[in-house]
Amino acid sequence: MAEYLALERKLMLKVVYYGPALSGKTTNLMQLHTLLQPQRKGELMVLETRDDRTLFFDVMPIGLRSASGLDLRLKLYTVPGQVQHDSTRKAVLSRADGVIFVADSQPAQQDNNANAFDNLADNLQKLGMDIERLPVVVQFNKRDLPGAVDEDELQARWSATPWTPLSMASALKGVGVVESFRQLLRRLYPRLDAEFHLTKREGLQEEDFIRYLSSVDGVANA
């Protein structure tokens, strides 16, 4: 849950990349680290890995400082996708403000996608959150692979859910990564605005919020 420190005028947010093993969560974060030029950007911290598989999590802080002086921080986390790391996944997911679910587009991975999504809903419930009320973006990654499930089919399959439209990406090639992130920011902003009155009190409009946090060519100070 977003945390606001009134004394320091600091608003701290948490976005989690979730999804089945090997779907490209860390790749998403690494690409964001390379592509994004937000107002403020910290180091990408990749914790322990084994054979390139995430054991704990990765984290990258980004931030903006509004004209009103609000110090807004957003930490982007990834979780380990492998089934056995569920307690780690749950710990990282706790107090998340938004989730980007990275699914694998390969036909053989559709069951894993579904299981991971159920696991996300389960863990959110255990943590006292409701997946229907949390800003969530579903990204289908690995669009560049031959044989990837047809986009129209995926969009149709998810059309009756709150998570439509889906976001399409090829994280390895840096395609769709920033767009997925922006889609999440767009779903996140109304929640934050309702709770912290970003427009009224801080003069921080949705477009600025998105631009400052997800610019790819640098932004002037707010």
């Binding site: 180091e43 911290m45 914790l47 322990e48 704990f56 999590f57 984290v59 307690s87 780690t88 749950k90 710990a91 990282v92």
Partner: peptide, 24 residues
Amino acid sequence: LFYVAKYRLAASLHHDTTEASFAE
């Protein structure tokens, strides 16, 4: 400190999850 923090984060998370698993 970046590397110290990495270790601390991993250790703390490990501690948290172990405790949570034990409680579970």
